[in-house]
Write a protein that binds this DNA or RNA. Structure first.
Lengths: 225, 225
DNA sequence: TTCTTTTTTTAGACGCGACTAATCTTTATA
DNA sequence: TATAAAGATTAGTCGCGTCTAAAAAAAGAA
């Protein structure tokens, strides 16, 4: 794995985020990166030579397999860092993002593994965004469980684990059915119970039970990422 | 505080370490930085313009007050990071140094404060090197107490707190007198007792008592710093 | 379709931080 | 003290990543 500059990593990350199914426009990259279009064109030439992007003059750009891999690594770093800074180090929402934005380029594989482990291999960051795995897989947005949601977050139940029919009945009784809106009020530490509010009424449920309730965020994408 | 490049920070750190009482030679900087002498001369010109060093052609270089301040900040980052990586994150000695070497340039004031606090405001890093304070003070090498020494380290008792005569008598009975060599064998977590070896015999002492025994390392300066 | 507007690229420049080769200065040695 | 060796600086180049101004290509409107 060759050494890439921070600038290169930032461009790849920006292109990844702009890239839906199609190709990305030079001007769009210039805007989110806050540089001139000429700078972007210049960089795209270099990225093309490095085979990280596929750029055709006047036709937009797209990440190659290698480029996508790098972008996902950086995004993984970012989201793991945000989770770590918030959960373990007590950073605020605003400080968290800026710090992760810088550190994501400078942590080692080793560091990444340690924080992943210390966090219990989380699948989503504090915003609810999925954390790419080491081999570049991104969890489906509905693979986050209620047990992982942070206090203050509002989520919608997506589906419920169908392993145990007793459990299903309990969840049904508790009103934790697909499409119900849930507001996580409090979380006891050390895998203790979770207090949720549904239709204004509070309810305390065990962490174990919560880990069988798969949820989605109400607003999948927002400002910071 | 203006933004400095990583290169500038690295030069200042190198000069700080080479600088005893006198001035530092271009070639010496080139050697530790692993760059050509011409590159050093070139950088010294820029550092002089920034008023971070005081450089006279053919006469060596010396840090200014501002330059020293920056160097100490970076060294503080490095030593706090090494301590954090080792104590909290479980890094090995070898990984610790390399990681701190990169991260020292990229952590915020906020991050620095958090890890300082999480570590209980340590005065020395795991090597036993003093950690500069935020305002650039460096603890005397003999202000580290036995309570702060890591298992495996060998230290020499420098002096003993003279607050309490009962304590002094206890320490005398335990053989913890100035110039005695002490090998820390084990440390119980959560401020539990410490096992030390002296003249081959092991002895268990309370953490509170150990915090009144001021020690110095046998080899004040070694490879990594 | 032709003209206009928007988007993108090219051309040329600049600061940073490195390099090599050549040219001083200073220091050491005969 | 003259000369050789060691140390430091200058001169000139290069790649990175940015910029502005100008030209070219694509897209939209009359």
């Amino acid at each position: 794995m060759r050494m890439l500059s921070q600038a290169v990593e930032d461009y790849l990350k920006a292109i990844y985020k702009l890239q839906g199914d199609g190709r990305v426009a030079t001007n769009d990259i210039a805007q989110v990166m806050e540089v001139s279009s000429a700078s972007v064109t210049n960089m795209l030439k270099r990225l093309t030579k490095m085979e990280l992007v596929d750029h055709a003059s006047y036709k937009g750009v797209r990440l190659t397999g290698a480029g996508t891999k790098v972008a996902l690594e950086i995004i993984r770093h970012h989201r793991l860092l945000e989770t770590y800074l918030k959960e373990i180090m007590g950073f605020s929402w605003s400080e968290m993002h800026a710090e992760a934005e810088r550190l994501e380029h400078h942590i080692s594989e080793e560091f990444e593994e340690r924080i992943d482990e210390m966090l219990g291999f989380p699948t989503h960051d504090p915003h609810g965004h999925p954390i790419p795995t080491k081999d570049g897989q991104i969890a489906d947005s509905a693979t986050q469980t209620l047990a992982e949601v942070e206090p203050g977050e509002r989520v919608v139940v997506h589906h419920v684990s169908d392993a145990d029919s007793d459990l299903l009945e309990y969840l049904e009784g508790a009103g934790l059915l697909p499409n119900s809106r849930v507001h996580v009020v409090e979380k006891e530490p050390f895998n203790g119970p979770i207090t949720v509010a549904m239709d204004g009424a509070e309810r305390v449920i065990g962490r174990e039970v919560a880990s069988h309730v798969f949820v989605a965020h109400e607003r999948p994408f927002e400002a910071g990422a």
